[in-house]
């Protein structure tokens, strides 16, 4: 697969996620996030219902038709060629509209001003930094590390002990998931939620 064709995606295999919260901690530590901001969070659904309970890790899903980018009144979002959705904190006014549009509750607003004013939005960058000069001090302060620029895997997926959380080119992610289903001989009857939208054309 040529690099121009690649489209970066996250996928969390909820058969494997053990709710260890390692991804949340790794992310917060790697990017030195303030208290109250979790770019990535592990959620458990159907808690206590036997056979139905499962956990999954959510963050910004870097949507192809990102609703946040559509509703932003100051157009601070930009979608990289590889599909990573990023935003410019120097343009963001902290209005909160991206949060209302987001299906995953990904955009967060640290309260850094007086009287509880919302600061610039913060969200998962897929460890790809921001619009500033790559690996500059300014970029690191605002967005955390830029691991993608160094050719490394985003920390959350890199440290995931069960390899439930996988990240990479959409086609590769799809292949890994398909291989897992095939080797188990059983799996989901239908594609997971949002699969066709996220990984299809």
């Amino acid at each position: 697969m040529s690099s121009e064709m690649s489209r970066m995606k996250f996928y969390c295999d909820d058969d494997r996620c053990i709710e260890c919260d390692g991804c949340t901690v790794a992310c917060a530590e790697a990017h030195e996030l303030p208290t109250g901001v979790s770019r990535r969070k592990v959620v458990t659904l159907n808690e206590g219902i036997e056979g139905k309970e499962f956990s999954t890790s959510v963050a910004c899903m870097h949507c192809t038709d990102a609703p946040c980018e559509q509703v932003c009144p100051v157009d601070c979002f930009y979608i990289r060629e590889d599909g990573i959705v990023l935003h410019d904190k120097d343009i963001c006014i902290g209005c909160g509209y991206c949060l209302y549009a987001c299906p995953f509750g990904a955009p967060q607003f640290p309260r850094d001003g007086a009287f509880g004013t919302k600061g610039a939005m913060d969200k998962c960058t897929m460890c790809a930094g921001g619009p500033q000069e790559t690996n500059s001090v300014h970029e690191r302060e605002l967005y955390g590390q830029n691991l993608i620029a160094e050719g490394k895997v985003p920390v959350c997926a890199a440290m995931c002990s069960t390899k439930a959380l996988i990240v990479g080119d959409a086609q590769d992610v799809a292949n890994i998931y398909r291989a897992r289903i095939a080797s188990k001989g059983k799996g989901v009857q239908s594609a997971p939620y949002g699969w066709s939208k996220a990984y299809g054309n």
Binding site: C72, P73, V74, D88, I91, I93, C95
Partner: peptide, 11 residues
């Protein structure tokens, strides 16, 4: 101005 924030460059 907020609604047309992009025309004012945001920030």
């Amino acid at each position: 101005i907020m609604m047309f924030g992009s025309s004012f460059g945001g920030g």
